[in-house]
């Protein structure tokens, strides 16, 4: 369970999070939506402790995450940009993360699934963006964590890989995990999400289901629903 209490964050004069209050206690797939710069990534990074908020607190299973680090072994995180140390090979990177987390990891099947076997000995610097994203996915899903956070997981993926990804996400959901996902691909949201959170200008604008969002905006299509919100607020 994640409880976000009155979370404020600004970068200099720019307010990114304006006192967010949010409680997520439902297992399943939660899509975090919002336009560029709305604070999605900042919020996620605050949960991970990578961004430090000026005010407010985040409780994970009832415990504050402030100045803590060990709770992160409960989280699998897929960062937005798959940048890795250039000099390492794929095997070395996977080995390193396994070594650092000292948790049970199941990377073999994932490597197989995404067809990464031929790239295992290649340096990460030489890989294409899509391949790097596949490595990113392997790194995220090889651990069995109760909370999975995916920041734009589909970037650069080919259709086959996308299908594999969706399949994995669903499998994880079946295991009873909470999965947070940010994306701009509304089809994906409609297809897999159980809950939708819409962030706008650093506030929670909507918290509910896809159909709830549609009915609130009186639109039949999710993309149009979002567009309607944005037009209304920036008109």
């Amino acid at each position: 369970m994640i409880e976000i209490k009155n979370l404020y964050k600004s970068y200099g004069p720019v307010d990114v999070l304006n006192g967010i209050n949010l409680t997520l206690d439902q297992k399943g797939i939660i899509a975090i939506l919002g336009p560029n710069g709305s604070g999605k990534t900042t919020m996620i990074k605050t949960i991970l402790g990578m961004v430090i908020a000026q005010k407010g607190d985040i409780l994970l299973n009832g415990e504050s995450v402030k100045n803590k680090w060990s709770y992160r072994d409960q989280i699998s995180y897929l960062p937005q940009i798959a940048n890795f140390p250039q000099n390492l090979s794929v095997t070395e990177l996977i080995g390193m993360i396994k070594n650092l987390r000292t948790q049970q990891a199941d990377d073999v099947a994932l490597i197989e699934l995404f067809g990464l076997t031929p790239f295992l000995d290649k340096k990460l610097g030489t890989l294409s963006g899509g391949t790097r994203q596949k490595v990113n996915i392997v790194l995220t899903f090889m651990f069995d964590s109760p909370l999975v956070i995916l920041d734009e997981p589909t970037t650069g993926l080919d259709p086959v890989a996308l299908i594999h990804l969706k399949k994995i996400i669903n499998e994880e959901k079946q295991k009873g995990k909470m999965i947070l996902i940010t994306t701009h691909i509304m089809n994906l949201v409609e297809e897999i999400s159980d809950q939708v959170i819409f962030i706008l200008d650093g506030n929670i604008y909507f918290n509910g289901t896809v159909s709830g969002l549609k009915s609130q905006t009186k639109q039949t299509n999710l993309e149009h629903a979002i567009a309607a919100i944005l037009e209304k607020n920036h008109a």
Partner: peptide, 17 residues
């Protein structure tokens, strides 16, 4: 600067800053 990505990768892991 060049190890920024590496750092970010590490920051998401259960490690102390």
């Amino acid at each position: 600067y060049s190890s920024k990505e590496f750092t970010e990768l590490l920051l998401a892991q259960p490690l102390k800053r």
